[in-house]
Amino acid sequence: MAKRLVLLAALLCAGAVHAADGSNNVATRPATVERQNDADGFTEPLKSLKFNPGLDQREFERATLNALEVYDPLESWNRRVYHFNYRFDEWVFLPVVDGYRYVTPGFVRSGVSNFFSNLGDVPNLLNSLLQFKGQRSLETTGRLLVNTTVGIVGLWDPASKIGLPKQSEDFGQTLGFYGVPAGPYLILPILGPSNLRDTGGLVFDFAAEAQINFLNVAQVSSDHPELYVLRAIDRRYTNSFRYGQMNSPFEYEKVRYVYTESRKLQIAE
């Protein structure tokens, strides 16, 4: 009996020693791993990160702006016009648009927008033909026929619902299609971003629309210039851009870059 008790006591002591060794291993393992992580830089990776002491914030901003570089020899003048447009938009255009939205029912505003959009499909069709875009010309012709008849002179836009989306083409794109360079960047009063080529295109589109006199609108507008005012208000109403919305001191550069690149894409499509 005594031998059995001694044997049982010996086994219990051995188990206690083994458990103590296991607990010591568990306690020491995290510390070892942590020391390894510290050495490898996983726990505090910023300790091993090295910065270029010669690069300051001004150099970074200058490098960023160089990536947005656009041919702009008239930048000083353009910035003045940009500032004028900013204030005109804030003090005149947007208050008028807000008043227009307040006093005009939604269905009337939609009708006005659709009417002028249908009118704009005339130069769209002309420029699609000049660029030999056959499918786009057919789609624009279909839009004009459907919206002018079924849509009651364009007050509604059933063409979009039957799979004839609006395709915007202008003479600036046509000139670009034939390889005419964009020329210097320009900011037009009230109208906004443009360039020398696109400004000439605007003049051509306006003259073509007046000569075609679709739905007799050009002749009526000459007798009632308030239609030009309504069209300008509608164009600003349908444009979601707001000066200052980028919340950046480099808004001028960004708008200039986006406009220039978007025109390249429109010409290439």
Rank of each mutant, 00 (worst) to 15 (best):
M1D: 09
V6E: 04
L7P: 00
A9V: 09
L11G: 04
L11W: 05
A19D: 00
D21W: 10
N24R: 15
N24M: 15
N25A: 12
T32M: 15
Q36F: 13
N37M: 15
A39P: 02
D40M: 15
P45W: 13
K47E: 12
F51T: 13
N52R: 09
D56E: 02
R58D: 12
R62Q: 14
A63R: 09
A63C: 07
N66A: 15
S76T: 14
R79M: 11
R80E: 10
D89F: 01
L94N: 01
R101K: 15
F107N: 05
G111L: 05
N118V: 08
N124A: 13
N127M: 02
N127I: 07
L130R: 13
F132H: 04
R136Y: 07
G142Q: 05
N147A: 07
W156N: 04
A159F: 09
S160Y: 10
Q167Y: 14
S168V: 13
T174G: 03
Y178S: 05
Y178H: 14
Y178G: 08
V180R: 01
A182L: 03
P189L: 12
G192W: 09
N195L: 05
L196K: 02
D198Q: 07
V203Q: 00
A208K: 00
L215Q: 07
A218M: 02
A218L: 08
S221F: 04
L230C: 07
R231L: 01
I233S: 06
Y237H: 11
N239D: 14
F241I: 04
F241D: 03
Q245A: 15
S248W: 03
F250R: 15
V255P: 02
V255H: 00
V258L: 14
V258E: 14
T260V: 03
